[in-house]
């Protein structure tokens, strides 16, 4: 077993997602530091186009499991393709982007190959010829650097940790890897994607700013009344003007399951924190959210952090944000929206 394999799923038009191109950069630098040859494995119906786009990466070879059966994001077929690519390559290190698709199947592939897998990798380093990985434990509470003796070693690389690879397309020679899907690999059919209505598309992974709304938006305000309708207008107004991504505290989205009046465009998918997501954005603005630790662990990868809260002793003021504005978020956001609208 030797060498490094990078597995990618091309998009239907043969292009590659940003996170896939980031992993190309990681593969290049890691293989070089280890002094190893590296290759790329592709699957789906657009493999030649994707291979041509990757012709300038310096990969020693490109392997492909071709066919429309492998366009479908389904465990059985994705695992079969990745297994064949890993076996054919004989690689000791296998990298892939931490997409929903690879996260669903690559551990199973590692198991089939008698390998080991680590996920949510936020960095790879090579010291003295040894590959070391970096990841967080206890939901972003502590960070470890470690190595593994076992091979093959599969690593799923988190997005946002490397510059996306870019280079000119060329003409790539592709080595075909044959996979015949067994009938029982088609027990699952993918019906499609259920996207929110376009005006409710609130999660934008590439946005410059994360806007977090907390339960305070639904609470009684100074006049003794809740103002959920105005809260919804202000939040949606800001999201539209700033093209921000919408995050939520758990308390706010839990109100829905508890049957209370809340913001109808929010769901658990928006929840940030211990039992929610850990998005990556350069800036984050928290509003009407207390900044308790189970929420703030989800801000690990948010660069600059600001918060608006009526309470000067809220969690954000305890070293968790760069700036805390002690103010009424309704009033501030009314002004912010007016200024963004005018500019």
């Amino acid at each position: 077993m030797s060498g490094l394999l990078l597995i990618l799923h091309p998009l239907p038009d043969g292009s590659l997602s940003k996170s896939a191109r980031e992993t190309v950069t990681v593969a290049q630098t890691t293989a070089q530091a280890l002094g190893m040859p590296w290759c790329i494995g592709l699957s789906g119906s657009a493999t030649q186009k994707a291979a041509d786009a990757l012709a300038g990466t310096g990969a020693a070879s490109i392997l492909a499991v071709a066919g429309a059966d492998f366009d479908v994001p389904r465990y059985a077929s994705d695992a079969a393709a990745a297994e064949a690519l890993a076996r054919q390559s004989g690689a000791e290190i296998v990298l892939a982007p931490a997409s929903a698709r690879f996260s669903r199947c690559l551990a199973g592939v590692a198991q089939r190959l008698g390998g080991r897998i680590d996920t949510h990798i936020t960095g790879l380093e090579v010291n003295g010829g040894t590959l070391r990985a970096r990841r967080w434990y206890y939901r972003q509470r502590m960070e470890a650097v470690f190595s593994r003796a076992h091979r093959p070693w599969f690593l799923l690389i988190d997005g946002g940790i490397a510059t996306p690879w870019q280079g000119p397309a060329g003409q790539a020679a592709v080595t075909a890897v044959a996979v015949t899907l067994a009938d029982d690999s088609r027990r699952t059919t993918v019906v499609g994607l259920q996207a929110p209505a376009s005006d409710a598309q609130t999660i934008r992974p590439d946005a410059n700013v994360l806007f977090v709304a907390g339960a305070g938006w639904t609470k009684k305000q100074a006049d003794g009344q809740p103002h959920v309708g105005e809260a919804a207008t202000l939040i949606r107004g800001f999201l539209g003007k700033a093209q921000a991504s919408l995050g939520s505290s758990k308390s706010l989205v839990d109100l829905k399951t508890e049957g209370q009046q809340t913001l109808d465009f929010m769901s658990h998918l928006n929840q940030v924190g211990q039992t929610g997501s850990t998005p990556r954005h350069p800036k984050g603005l928290s509003t009407c959210c207390h900044g308790e630790e189970p929420h703030v662990v989800g801000w690990r990868f948010i660069g600059e952090r600001r918060a608006i809260n009526l309470d000067p002793n809220c969690g954000w003021a305890q070293g968790k944000a760069d700036v805390v504005y002690v103010a009424d978020a309704f009033e501030v956001m009314r002004n912010v929206n007016a200024m963004l609208g005018a500019s």
Partner: peptide
């Protein structure tokens, strides 16, 4: 199932 960008992948398993 949750997938990227706040979307769901809808599947049917026999």
């Amino acid at each position: 199932e949750r997938v990227e960008g706040g979307q769901y992948q809808v599947s049917r398993c026999v």
